[in-house]
Design a protein around this nucleic acid. Structure first.
Lengths: 223, 223
DNA sequence: TAGATTGTTAATCGATTAACAATC
DNA sequence: TAGATTGTTAATCGATTAACAATC
């Protein structure tokens, strides 16, 4: 009831970073931290840290700071990490396989329930003790199993068909690694991870920087 | 000289998405598009589209719209894609291997020059025709080879040492897949890709949604 | 109590959207 | 010319930062 409604997306996107840095602090046996000290480590302003945390509750004590253990647990709860998340991977290519082997996910209580692929050479093989199934059986699988998050690692051409199945079964979330955007209005929450977008952001910045340098050089030549 | 200086990061982050959608339009043989039509497809407002594009130049014609081919080439240039980028992958684990095999990178003229790892079992093996070298030779390799972007896929504990080598050799960009943030002040441009941050954003949103639903249900029960 | 630091409001900054003159 | 759509300025919106009263 006292829950603040509709946390801004900008705040939500920062929460995982708080979580990582709080983990670090715990590992370093730091038990108390002020917003100013955390600011130095995490790179957000102390004002922003206090604002961010306050959109979820009052986790600190005036004149004292934040108890790291307590704050860590609060953030863990905010991220929904006290629940186990059942996930399946659809598409057992490079990325799908890498994610299936990604041990960090287990630590976050993300449980890989099944892997699907269309390639007969892959079907039947196990990755990280999870067998690869025929993607043709995805529909019936989802009728019988409650899955929280579907991880999509199939090529663009396959996305549309998969999407329809997921919508039909009202999967809760989609973690999308395919290069097309998935956006299901008013429905399933989707997080798109576009490798190439990230790389192109980098090349764009490099290009900008080089442009500035060349411009500066030409100005220097004139002067 | 007529270059607008300091494009906002928000705009730069959107450029790869323009690039993707322009590729689509080209594939669909669409030759002209208005900001309003593009708005429907890409999901930005037409106003934002015109603003974004205008921070780089005047690419459209009033009363007409944008020539898709022309705009595509402009955006390609903005993203620095007319240059070839020489990259190396450091860390040949799950993610490193997946990236080495990721064919989309080749299409963007990203050329994989070398792969490094510390694991003796991997050294000497080739992935996608590129041999894995001993990470101990990275320093001398960088003395002899001009590399644009280093892709970091090593575990947290290895990052610090790698970073020092990269700074020493003034690599231009870092594409970081390790779970620690890399931020080199005033120096190498870095793009951090944190899988688990992305996943936790998703679980956070799921958690928020569930919270809202439960609250609604409890309100309904009272009413 | 004095000092410190939060929680929170107010001020600023930047990004998005709206509006419209310029012009194809 | 009339209609359409850009380029660009002005208005709005939201996010960040600054400031300070509350309080540990």
């Amino acid at each position: 009831m006292d829950n603040k409604i509709d946390i801004p997306m900008a705040v939500i996107k920062r929460m995982p970073k708080y979580f990582r840095y709080l983990e670090d602090l715990l590992r370093g046996n730091i038990s108390i931290i002020s917003s100013r000290e955390l600011s130095v480590k995490i790179g957000f302003t102390s004002s922003q840290i206090r604002q961010d945390l306050n959109s979820f509750g009052e986790f600190g004590s005036r004149g004292y700071g934040y108890n790291v253990q307590e704050l860590y647990e609060q953030v863990k709860g905010i991220l929904g990490l006290y629940k186990e998340h059942k996930v399946i991977i659809i598409g057992a290519g490079n990325i799908g396989q890498a994610l299936a082997n990604y041990s960090r996910l287990e630590k976050l209580r993300v449980r890989l329930e099944a892997i699907f692929d269309a390639n007969p050479k892959l079907i039947g093989i196990s990755i990280n003790d999870v067998e690869i199934r025929d993607v043709g059986t995805l529909d019936s699988y989802l009728s019988e199993n409650m899955i929280d998050i579907c991880i999509i690692c199939v090529p663009c051409s396959q996305v549309e068909g998969i999407k329809d199945i997921l919508v039909k079964h009202k999967v809760k979330g989609i973690w999308n690694f395919s290069p097309v955007d998935i956006d299901i209005p008013g429905g399933i929450i989707t997080e798109n991870v576009h490798f190439s977008d990230s790389l192109l952001t980098l090349t764009c910045l490099l290009n900008e920087q080089q442009g500035r340098q060349e411009q500066k050089e030409s100005e220097d030549r004139i002067a």
